[in-house]
Design a protein around this nucleic acid. Structure first.
Lengths: 330, 330
DNA sequence: GGCCCTAATGTAAACGGTTACACCGCGCTT
DNA sequence: AAGCGCGGTGTAACCGTTTACATTAGGGCC
């Protein structure tokens, strides 16, 4: 495989000139540029990026830490990140942590060993790693107390909006299918739920909160538990993501409950499958693509030292009413 | 940031010894090893992988080309690839091509420029690139005529199995919702469809094939077209992936057709949402995880020159009957 | 005791780029 | 005409490892 020296020899110039021709073409005379390009074409030369990156002490790579790649929402965010990163000359390394601490650790090692220049976290693990502060890290799906450079929506307000919608439809017994109790997203969204209740003069009833873990199966299970109660069964379920809402819809179906006639269900995220559930899911659309792009820009700006001072990006969400919510039954 | 020389100085040995202590610990005396490790701990030294990779002329990275990351099936395959790659000391670069040729090209450039050691393709684009032969490439979701190192299921037989199931249920008018007509997967699966028809003594009716592009929306559209016909409306729809099947279910619902009573629908892939559709989707389960792992192993073995000779891995599929198929209506 | 073999370590040359610095020649200014 | 500035180019050092080869020491064998 040819290298820069061969190109230089063939073009009759020095290696420095070839290097400049590639990296700073404006600094070399047009005639020279042409000779160099001819030589490059002739040899089918491709610069060795391994060498370039090594010399520049930059990997031109970022790693994205995702709790679960096969969740459609995260996949969309990552797509946007990848897209933007590529535009700016970076490559993205995949780090599916599966919510495991050791996997996460081993991904962070990538930046410690210089294989990556920074990290984008898709989960809002607030728990700082001891040496985390030396690592450039941006949170793409932040929460109220997610540390500095991060992008998020106002989860509290979004949750409140959803619950206000249900209240306006006359629902008084609104069950919650939550993510893991100590997950920051769960906390924020529960906060919004409580705010809406309080504003409506209703008391918060802890037994109406069923804990899941953001998966389809856990949503189904949680819904079963909530709907099992004979007395005072919830007439609406506020689910903290779409996957669990889809699970809840399934539970309703197997219990013979008609949605939205007998039970309203709401989701969160607006994943691509949301308009295709039966009935289509009322949900909060997070601007997944915009969040990905913004997070990528935030991180890359910091890597390239053009650290903008606007370190917290809060993007607007959209509340989308579809068919899964309706007036509270009789 | 400390480097190998500082470690050597602190440990009172040469850089070569430090290097060996890290890469070939069995080659250094236990006492020396200890000194080196102490120095490493003291300085909190992390070897610079950029330098190591450069020196070894290896990136220890593979890129995976995926047509659409937010498709749940691909996401699962990638997860498995990432998992296996990490086990074997490699990192995975994400290449979401969005079915664009230029994006694909630019990803291949990564291996030409040495930033990656090989490629795993998730789409079976048979169209060889001019210089593709210099690039280590493995196909993870192959077809009948996918070139050499590849893993796949027997798409033809799987499709035939599905259609035989529908025939056994008494269906005689079986519509097809296909992927793009020239997509190899579409071809294989259509072939299986035809085989089943022929075996049952039925004629193939081209107008019962509606072309989609594997997306939810295209499935909905295609189903609308097929179900719009007054005379001889299909009683079953064979969809070439789950996403389009979900679209078809939606179409049926909006047209007031009951599934499976009036219309049977089948999918392909068994994505995680398949058991949660209404009714749950009858489909072909591709062993997504196994496919990912196998593809990773195939590629890494070749990168490491331990090229196994079993270059074509054909994994078993599973046909899963759920609620979306039933006897043909009266 | 000399020889040979081996294990452990050190020396220094790569790897393929980038870039600071030196240099050269030309045109413009004064 | 001398000096200056500047655009274009070349020389060579440098980035942090790995590793071929040289060197050394020690142990076993005759």
């Amino acid at each position: 495989m040819s290298n820069i020296r061969e190109v230089a020899r063939l073009a009759g110039v020095s290696v420095a000139t070839v290097s400049r021709a590639l990296s700073h073409p404006e600094k070399v005379a047009p005639a020279t540029l042409e000779k160099v390009q001819a030589a490059i074409a002739e040899l089918d030369y491709r610069p060795n990026m391994l060498a370039r990156n090594f010399r520049q002490a930059r990997a031109f790579a970022i790693v994205v830490l995702v709790p679960d790649l096969s969740n459609s929402f995260f996949a969309t965010v990552i797509r946007a990140i990848e897209d933007r990163a590529q535009q700016r000359g970076y490559v993205v390394l995949l780090g599916d942590t599966r919510d495991s601490r050791v996997r996460e650790r081993s991904c962070l090692r990538l930046v410690e060993t210089r294989l990556a220049d920074g990290v984008i976290q898709l989960s809002p693990h607030a728990t700082a790693h001891p040496d985390r502060d030396e690592i450039l890290c941006v949170y793409a799906c932040g929460c109220e107390n997610t540390p500095a450079p991060s992008v998020r929506i106002d989860n509290v307000r979004a949750a409140r909006t959803v619950v206000e919608h249900l209240l306006a439809l006359g629902h008084r017994r609104i069950g919650v299918i939550s993510g893991l109790r100590d997950n920051p997203h769960s906390r924020d969204r529960l906060k919004g739920y409580k705010q809406a209740l309080r504003a409506a003069g209703l008391a918060f009833e802890p037994s109406w909160v069923a804990e899941g873990d953001f998966t389809l199966a856990s949503g189904l299970e949680a819904a079963r538990r909530l709907l099992a109660r004979r007395e005072a069964r919830p007439t609406a379920l506020f689910c903290m993501n779409d996957e669990m809402a889809i699970g809840a819809l399934r539970a309703a179906k197997t219990l013979g409950l008609e949605v939205p006639k007998q039970l309203s269900v709401t989701g969160f995220d607006d994943i691509r499958y949301a308009p295709y559930t039966d009935p289509p899911l009322t949900t909060v659309a997070q601007p997944a693509e915009a969040m990905g792009r913004a997070a990528a820009d935030l991180l890359l700006d910091r890597i390239e030292q053009r650290a903008g001072d606007n370190e917290l990006v809060v993007l607007p969400f959209e509340f989308i009413v579809r068919g899964s919510t309706g007036p509270a039954p009789g």
